[in-house]
Simulated assay, not measured.
Amino acid sequence: MKLWISMWPFWAILSAVFAALTAIFAKVGVENIGSDLATFIRTIVVLLALGAILTLTDGWQGLGSVSRRSMIFLILSGLATGASWLCYFRALQLGNAAQVAPIDKLSVVFVAVFAVMFLGEKLSAINWTGVAFIAAGAILVAYRA
């Protein structure tokens, strides 16, 4: 039997918890400064934290060990992350966290669609039903009457 710490649901739930805290902390953090500066500060903190984790876990490895393909896609992922963070912080500055965060979570819907389109992944009818529920739920949570 696997330990729960070595199973993906454990880490996915932690990711969701930290993403929720990100929204709450960021909403307060962007109150009196520009959203782009807030994103910059957040990025510095992430870089320092990851550098510390890599050092503590002896996870550093030479860039030469990363394939060209991996490097290209990691760079693209970094650019997409940066764009996402900039847009997210701007949205938090302009809207309520309880409205912005659910719309941001439509990324789950986009991941499902993109995974099918670009990665050749297959989703069953029940999976697509779940994707539709996620989309509907995000919109309903964000809707303000």
Rank of each mutant, 00 (worst) to 15 (best):
A91F: 09
I33S: 08
L54R: 05
L3T: 06
W60T: 02
A142T: 01
G95R: 01
G120F: 14
L3H: 14
G64C: 03
D36M: 11
Y143G: 03
I75T: 11
A97N: 00
F25P: 07
T129S: 15
F40P: 02
A132C: 13
A20F: 07
V46W: 14
S107P: 03
N127D: 15
T22A: 07
F133G: 05
E121Q: 12
S15V: 08
S77R: 07
A19R: 11
L92R: 01
V30L: 09
Q61S: 10
N32G: 10
L123Y: 10
I139H: 03
L50Q: 00
E31T: 13
A20I: 07
A49P: 00
W85S: 04
L56Y: 04
I134V: 15
T43V: 05
V17E: 11
W85A: 07
L76I: 10
A125I: 11
G130T: 13
F25G: 08
V100G: 00
V66P: 02
L106R: 02
M71K: 08
A12I: 12
D104E: 14
L74Q: 09
D58F: 09
V113P: 01
S70Q: 13
W60G: 01
W85R: 01
S67K: 06
T57Y: 04
F89I: 00
S65Q: 05
A19G: 13
M7H: 12
F89K: 01
K27I: 00
A52Y: 14
L63P: 06
P102R: 09
L94E: 04
A132W: 10
L140F: 15
S77V: 04
I33G: 02
R90P: 02
L14W: 15
G130F: 09
R42C: 02
L37F: 15
L63H: 03
L47N: 02
R90F: 13
L94M: 13
A142V: 03
V17H: 11
L37S: 11
W128E: 03
M71N: 03
A26T: 07
S84M: 13
E121G: 04
V17A: 15
F40W: 12
L3E: 09
